[in-house]
Simulated scan of single mutants.
Amino acid sequence: MTIETETLQPTRIANRPQRRAKRDLSRNVLLPWLSPIAILLVWWFVSAAGIVGPKVLPSPVLVVAAAWELTLNGRLPQALVASLGRVLAGTIIGVALGLAAGLLAGYYRAGQIVVDKPLQMLRAVPFNALVPLFIVAFGIGEWMKVSLIAVGVLVPIYLNTFAGVRNVDSKLVEVGLVYRAPRYLIAYKILFLGALPSILTGLRFSLAIAWIALVTSETVNANAGIGYILAQAQRFVRTDQVFLCIVIYAFLGILTDYLVRLLEGRLLAWRNTYDGR
Results as ranks from 00 to 15, higher is better:
L207S: 03
V168S: 12
K145P: 08
C245H: 02
A150L: 12
G202C: 12
V215I: 15
I199P: 05
I186W: 02
L230C: 04
V242K: 01
V155S: 04
A137S: 12
E174Y: 03
A231I: 11
W211A: 12
R183N: 11
T216R: 00
D169T: 08
L185P: 01
A163D: 14
L196G: 11
A210W: 09
Y249W: 10
S147N: 13
V215W: 01
R235P: 00
G176R: 09
V242C: 03
N221R: 13
Q232P: 00
L200F: 13
N223K: 12
G176N: 11
R238L: 04
R180S: 13
V178G: 03
R183C: 01
I135S: 07
G164Y: 03
V136D: 02
R180V: 06
F243H: 00
V155M: 08
L203W: 05
G152F: 08
N221K: 11
S170I: 08
Q241I: 10
F192D: 08
Q241F: 01
A150N: 09
L203T: 04
L154H: 08
Q234A: 12
I209D: 00
F243R: 04
M144Q: 15
S147Y: 07
F205P: 00
L159A: 11
V237Y: 15
D240T: 04
A233I: 07
D240I: 01
V151L: 15
T239N: 08
V247F: 14
I140C: 00
P156M: 05
G152W: 05
Y249M: 15
Y184L: 14
V220A: 09
W211M: 13
A181D: 01
S170D: 13
V146L: 09
V175A: 14
G141E: 07
I157Q: 01
F236A: 03
G176Q: 10
R183M: 09
I199H: 03
I149E: 02
G152D: 07
S217D: 04
T239W: 07
G176V: 09
V220F: 11
V178H: 04
A224P: 01
A224E: 14
L200T: 08
S206V: 13
I229G: 03
G141T: 03
I199G: 03
D240E: 14
L185V: 14
W143N: 12
G227F: 06
R166G: 00
A181F: 10
A137N: 02
Q234P: 01
L244W: 04
I209R: 06
V173T: 15
E142P: 05
I140T: 15
I226W: 02
G225R: 02
Y188D: 11
L214Q: 02
N167Y: 00
L244P: 04
I212S: 14
N167S: 15
F243S: 02
I140P: 01
F162D: 07
Q232G: 01
Q232L: 13
L172R: 11
G176T: 13
L200W: 08
L148M: 10
V146Y: 06
V153W: 00
L200I: 15
S217R: 00
A210H: 06
N160D: 10
K171P: 02
L200N: 06
A195W: 01
A213C: 15
L230Y: 13
W143L: 11
A137W: 15
M144L: 13
V175W: 02
V146A: 03
L148S: 01
V165A: 09
G139H: 05
I246Q: 08
Y249C: 12
N221I: 06
T216K: 03
A208I: 14
A231V: 13
Y184K: 05
T161C: 11
G139I: 06
